[in-house]
Amino acid sequence: MPILQSSSPDKKKEAMLLGLLILCLCSLFALSLSIGSTRIGLKGLLLILQGKDRLSAAYRIVRHIRLPRTLAALFCGMALALSGHLLQKVLHNPLAGPSIIGVNSGAGLFALLASAFFPHLIPLGTLFAFVGALGSSILVYALARRSGSTRLTIILAGVAVSSLLGSFTDTLLTLRPDTQMGRLDFLIGSFAHVPFSQVSQTSPYIIGGVLLSFLLGKDLNILALGDEVALSLGLEVGRTRFLALMLASLLSASVVSMCGLIGFVGLVVPHMMRSLVGEESALSLPLTALAGAIITLGCDLVARTVFSPYELPVGIVLSFLGSPFFLFLLFKRKRSDCHA
């Protein structure tokens, strides 16, 4: 049994990390429900979550304002982190992420188009966003592949496609300022005005996407070895890559249709997890999802509280923390490339 012995310390560490993250998420969840202009104690919170005490103001605050917001943050964090993880693995590129390679902007444009021209189809907004996200991710991938798929071309193609789609979005917002989604929240991303109905509409897509991507984990590790090696090991490379792009698009499209264009979670969180548990941990996908939820929920809490009673859109807080991290990554990469 030398194998089990030699790999067990790592497993133990990962299990501990998993426990720690779950604990962290639970406490943030409770905090997020209790903190605000009306503070609600733990006892009161438990009563409310059990469905008792329905007539109090506290119940209504939690049920209609804080719970949807908290759940939205949680789901979005998970979805974006996983989406980023999938994209980075599939495109063999550590700088890929839903907001960098055009997936988010594709989803955003299509969601906006839907709400501008087919307002009666708003409940199908997630599907529209999904089409946009999938379309732009495939476009970026095809462009990069045609021009010789180096790591740089895919980022450049993504930036170009992103800004093109972004200009369409801006044009639309200028010409039709009264679209339902035409608000600042959409462009920066915020959980403040997400109604419960929206959360319950979109969360099945996210939960489904999350579970399916867990199934893909092992295949993605094979794909990360490069197309040629993966093919020779019997992986259906094309199919796996398409599936992963589709899942990544579904996840980020769900987020966009729920709370707008939120950046950087998808880029930053997979990196943090990789540096903690390595490239191929069996738990890396669940850990990434959890960490995404924690960071998004944490940033939302910050966004709500630092300037209270005013609040910042969470996208600002995330970008504030995420942009320096991205720069750090770029420079670190450059240095290690020089050494290689």
Binding site: L225, G226, E279, E280, A340
Partner: peptide, 21 residues
């Protein structure tokens, strides 16, 4: 293969991938 991507996995997990099929 003659050229490999610079994957950051351990030697043991790389060799284990040989069992994938």
């Amino acid at each position: 293969s003659q050229d490999h991507l610079d994957s950051n996995c351990t030697v043991h997990s790389l060799v284990s991938h040989g069992r994938y099929p």
